[in-house]
């Protein structure tokens, strides 16, 4: 289809979104990502039964953590789409890119000298 989506998005492939843990999302934020999103299969259509539902709970947990720290929880999100929905994948990428641009850079990037 050769669909284009924002080039600033780094894709990390996992066998199932059930593999995505809280620590992975937090590490991305800690390492300076302005936003992170998980693109999982449609609910009820996980090949491993509940992987995407587990990912959804973990995303919700990380949103709560960010909120407690005074960081916009919208920087982390979960999306569901099927592998056949290429146009929707590109649309989500643009949607997330727009959202993060509106929020601006992550407040943790203010510290010039990284730990």
């Amino acid at each position: 289809m050769r669909l284009s989506y924002p080039t600033n998005i780094t894709i990390i492939q996992v066998p199932c979104t059930g593999r995505v843990d809280i620590i992975h999302l937090l590490n991305a934020i800690e390492d300076g990502a302005d936003g992170v999103y998980v693109a999982g299969c449609l609910e009820g259509e996980c090949h491993y039964m509940t992987g995407n539902l587990k990912a959804k709970k973990r995303v919700r947990y990380v949103k709560k953590v960010l909120e407690e720290l005074g960081i916009e929880p919208e920087r982390v999100e979960m999306f569901n789409l099927s592998a056949g929905e290429g146009p929707r994948f590109a649309e989500i990428a643009r949607e997330m890119d727009k959202r993060i641009r509106e929020l601006g850079p992550s407040p943790i990037n203010n510290l010039k000298k990284a730990v």
Binding site: D21, I29, E30, L69, N109, N110
Partner: peptide, 24 residues
């Protein structure tokens, strides 16, 4: 060990946000 990692990452984010350098 998993929860230790999560707490460390959370604290690092919190300190970075406040522009405080901390080693953990």
């Amino acid at each position: 060990s998993k929860e230790v990692g999560v707490l460390a990452a959370t604290l690092k984010i919190a300190f970075k946000k406040e522009e405080i350098s901390i080693e953990m």
